[in-house]
Amino acid sequence: MSPENITVAIAVPLSSELVERIKSAHPTVTVRYEPELLPPERFPADHAGDPAFKRTAEQEARYWKMLRSADVLYGFPNEDAQGLASISSSPKLRWIQAMAAGAGGTVKAANLSPSDLARITVTSSAGVHALPLAEFAMLGILNGFKGTVALAADQAAKHWPELRSPTRLLSGSNVVIAGLGEIGLETARLARALGMNVSGTKRNVEAIDGIDVVTDTAGLPDLVATADVLINTLPGTPYTEKLINSKIFNAMKPGTILINVGRGTVVDEEDLLAALNNGQLSYACLDVFAEEPLPTNSELWSHPLVLVSPHCSALSAAENRLIAERFIENLTRFQADEELLHPVDSVYFY
Rank of each mutant, 00 (worst) to 15 (best):
R203S: 11
M196E: 13
R168Q: 14
L258R: 00
G179P: 01
K202L: 06
G236K: 02
K247T: 12
G195L: 10
N204T: 10
T217I: 14
G179T: 15
V261G: 07
A225S: 15
V205H: 10
S171D: 08
V205S: 12
P254C: 03
L234W: 03
L194Y: 11
F249D: 03
D222Y: 00
L223F: 11
E162M: 11
I208L: 13
S171V: 01
M252E: 05
D228S: 09
P254G: 07
V267M: 09
A193V: 10
E182W: 02
S171I: 01
L234H: 03
V229S: 02
G179L: 12
P221R: 02
P166N: 12
G181W: 09
T167H: 08
E182M: 11
T233G: 05
T201P: 07
Y239Q: 10
P166F: 15
A225T: 13
L169D: 14
L223N: 04
M252G: 04
F249P: 00
R189L: 02
G179R: 14
K242P: 01
Y239M: 08
E162R: 12
I208E: 07
V214P: 02
H159Q: 10
V261Y: 02
L163W: 07
I231Y: 01
I259F: 07
I183F: 01
T215L: 09
S173Q: 06
L234G: 04
L243I: 07
L220V: 13
L230K: 07
A225Y: 08
E206V: 07
L243P: 00
L190M: 13
P161C: 14
V261H: 09
K253T: 02
Y239A: 12
V198S: 08
M196N: 06
G219S: 08
I244H: 00
I177H: 00
A178Y: 00
A207S: 15
L223M: 13
L230V: 05
L170V: 12
T240E: 06
V205T: 13
N197K: 13
L243G: 03
P254K: 15
G181S: 04
T187V: 08
A188F: 06
K242N: 15
A225W: 07
H159Y: 06
S246R: 12
E206D: 05
I244M: 06
I183S: 01
P166G: 07
P221H: 04
N250E: 07
I211P: 09
I208H: 04
A193L: 12
P161D: 15
K242M: 09
V224I: 10
S165G: 03
S246V: 09
I259A: 02
R203P: 00
V214E: 11
D222H: 05
T233I: 11
N260I: 11
I183V: 13
L180G: 04
V229M: 05
V205Q: 10
G262I: 11
T237Y: 12
I248K: 01
P254M: 04
L170Y: 03
R164L: 14
N232P: 03
E241W: 01
V198G: 08
T167K: 04
L180S: 07
I183D: 00
N250S: 14
E241N: 06
E186I: 12
S246P: 00
K247M: 06
R164T: 10
